[in-house]
Amino acid sequence: MPTEYHDLSNWDIGFAALLIIVNGVISVALKLGLEKKLIVASIRTITQLSLLGFILEWIFQQNNWFYLFLIILFMTLTAGYTSSKNATRFYSGMWINSIFAVMVSSWLVTSIALLTVIRPETWKENPAQFVIPLLGMILGNTLNGISLGINYLNESLINNRGRVEMLLTLGATRWEAARDSVQSAVKSGMIPILNTMSVVGLVSLPGMMTGQILAGVPPLSAVKYQIVIMFLIASGTALGTIIAVVLGYRKLFNSDHQFLYERIQKR
């Protein structure tokens, strides 16, 4: 039988923090110069996660649809903005496209999961407890897919501008000229999740499943949840990446079958 859920004390966290101090000592000894970054990163981890803990406790207690909506909107906007922020090349309006892609894909997939897989009778008492973690996991992965996809699209089109224009001069439509770049961009967005799905359980134990097992949930139940989550993440990532890449293609090619390369700028 699995053991009961064991609540961690502040001392337990303190012991874990000691390990980071060991890292700091190594950094000083080897002159890696990482000790400051380690301290800042550790403080950020404690602060951000504690803050999240307080907010989640509060949201769960309130059990109010409006507050729930506000927090998932905040999560979605942050994910959408982050997915376009680090691209080396951008076009104006790219962040709006990213937010739209993140929102449509993750909200749709989460809704399908809540309505069909998990069923309303499970979560109707306290929707926040299901919506926030589910959406969070899907958003985190979708934003990576979108980020890789739009970055690849812009880079590929600019680096292959001669080829794209050559195809257009030979009578290709805008889709025929852009197809290779669009397809490769979607593939590049999907690679991380496909890799994760291929080795899950062999190389890595996913965080959610680990958390559930540590909390005393029987492994087979945790596995079932994890399988569902992997499928949700994969479909959210695919959908979000396709939307973001297609919106980018529509922005960079007009109905006159012209490649508007001037719209792509280097950051």
């Binding site: 257009l168 001069t169 030979l170 009578g171 290709a172 439509t173 109905s255 006159d256 079958h257």
Partner: peptide, 10 residues
């Protein structure tokens, strides 16, 4: 027109 452009470019 838009649809004539690929043919035009040939």
């Amino acid at each position: 027109s838009h649809s004539m452009i690929p043919k035009y470019r040939q």
